[in-house]
C-alpha cells in the first residue's frame, strides 16, 4: 500500500498512490494510515485522485481511519473519482465526510 504523507501547515496530507482500495488491500490501508496519523496532529486530508475504484471494504477502512482519529481531529477527503464517488453517495457516506472536489480546493480551506 503506497501512501505518501506530508505536512502542510496544520494539515497532514496523505496521497493514495494506488488505483484501488479494495478487499485485497483494505487492511494494509488502515494499518498504514494508523501509523501516519499517529505521527501527526490536527486535520487529516486524504487525496484520492489516483484511486479509480473503492469497494465496501475500502469504504469500511476509510470509516475506521476516521474513528481512530477520534472526535477532536477531522478526516477530510479530496479528489473522488466517479466510481469512488458513487460508493460514497449510494451509502450516504458523502454526508459523513467533508469531501472536497480536488486538492487545491481542500488546501485553500484553512484547517
Amino acid at each position: 500500500m503506497n501512501l505518501h504523507a506530508k505536512t502542510l501547515a496544520d494539515t497532514l496530507l496523505v496521497e493514495v498512490e494506488e488505483d484501488r482500495i479494495d478487499a485485497a488491500c483494505a487492511i494494509q490501508f488502515k494499518d498504514r494510515m494508523r501509523e501516519l496519523v499517529a505521527k501527526a496532529e490536527g486535520r487529516v486530508l486524504i487525496d484520492m485522485a489516483r484511486v479509480r475504484f473503492l469497494d465496501s471494504s475500502g469504504l469500511g477502512a476509510v470509516v475506521a481511519v476516521m474513528k481512530l482519529l477520534g472526535p477532536e481531529r477531522r478526516l477530510e477527503l479530496a479528489g473522488l473519482t466517479p466510481a469512488v464517488d458513487k460508493v460514497f453517495r449510494l451509502t450516504r457516506m458523502d454526508s459523513v465526510f467533508r469531501i472536497h472536489p480536488d486538492l487545491p480546493a481542500a488546501l485553500r480551506e484553512a484547517g
Partner: peptide, 17 residues
C-alpha cells in the same frame, strides 16, 4: 446501515450496494 449515532458502521455496505 444506519449512519446516525456516534458509532459509524465499518461494514454492512456490500449487500446494500
Amino acid at each position: 446501515p444506519s449512519l446516525g449515532g456516534a458509532n459509524l458502521p465499518e461494514g454492512g455496505f456490500g449487500w446494500f450496494l
